[in-house]
Amino acid sequence: MGSRAEGERAAVGGEGGRASSRAFLLLVGGAGLALVVAVVVIFHCTPQDAELGFVQKIFYFHLPSALYGYLGFTICCVASIGYLVRPRVIWDVVAQSGAFCGVLFCGMVLLSGPLWARKSWEPWWTGEPRLVLTLVLFLLFVSYLLVRSFGGRGELTRQIGAVLAVFGFADIPLVHLAVKRWGGHHPRVIHQGGISGEMWLALGVSMVALGLLFVVLFWLRLRVGLLEEEVEDLHRDIADRSGLVEDRQ
């Protein structure tokens, strides 16, 4: 067994593993509780928006999801650069986990956005820069995950995945520049000064709840990734040893 696999196993098993499992369970409980509190605060403690009505409550999930989606993609890009500079499996697993969480939260934005848009400004979709940018981001990182899922395992896929993630992230300002010249409209809720104290509170609670959910999902994906690497190492180990036995015979 190589030292890398042992190090990774220490992260997911043994004494440290048990402590981290306990911390993980606490985190899951905290995230669940925070989500319940967020729902109660959003639906019972905030006033109904005068202009947008009940549908404005989507905002409390929409904005935090967008921010955490961007966070996931940023983690993916930073870890990919880390992998390109110093190829360590952990960088790759972190990058994949970041992309996975980013796509999930970005998907939530792309689901909640059109619902809100339909009620607020009739069309489900417009060519507004932020909308197009979010959609392109989603597409870029879904294609990254597809390459990772169907490209097999090993050094080649890891390095190519890191290259694609950096490419995708560097593409974002260009897409932004291109779509900004198109023009469009997006509700500027905060800049209108239309947010009351209760609304800020609900937004804060929602940010914390979705943040905890992000951490839970990220941690879970990271653990799965590390276990997958460990299984892969064991497979390789068995293949090597059976090769040795055959050689002796």
Partner: peptide
């Protein structure tokens, strides 16, 4: 060059290339 050794390269090439060339 990146996808040349992948089994699903014909499918993956447009999937990776198209979002990147949007600008």
């Amino acid at each position: 060059a990146a996808l040349a050794r992948f089994r699903l390269r014909e499918v993956l090439l447009p999937l990776v290339l198209y979002p990147l060339i949007i600008p």
